[in-house]
Amino acid sequence: MIHLGTQVTAISELDDIDSLVAVYWARVLRFVTFSVGDPDLAQTITQDCFLKAYNGRASFRGECSVNTWLIGIANHLICDHVRLKKFQFWRKARATALDVTEFASFLPSNESSPESKILARERMEQVKAAVDSLSVNQRRVFLLKFFEEMNVEEIAAMTDMPVNTVKTHLHRGIKTIRATLGGTK
């Protein structure tokens, strides 16, 4: 059950577009970027997502967190773009694909030795390459699980997929990444 106080807070939070962007922009952009694999397109989708959310803030009923609501809107926008032929073209062209070296430079330097840092960077690049190799649906499900920490039922509700389909996508994604990272099997 959602408390009225929580709902009121969320709705007033939605009224301030600047705070909305300040709090949630990075998280939504991360999900969209790694779902579509194109940072420029991701910026456009994220912008659309926030404008849509702001314009439709009256329809937010507080049944989920604002973040989940925004990710849901972003997810629908990604689906719309995936259906467009334009997206297929850009996906093939990969003109503005995220540069893995640039991306890897954002890896937090928690490692003690230079060797550990290099190893961590290599593994991170491997994960990114493996995520990129997944299909759009596999990737969306995978990111919702590991970025947004949703469970299978929540992912199924958000993506309008049956629970078993979500599980299949998730298992395939994990299998691909496990193989890329050199599993013991």
């Binding site: 954002f106 937090p108 593994r123 991170m124």
Partner: peptide
């Protein structure tokens, strides 16, 4: 690895 990937992606974002 997945945790590092998520953290890096967030830092980039």
């Amino acid at each position: 690895s997945l945790s590092a990937f998520g953290t890096t992606a967030m830092a980039w974002s």
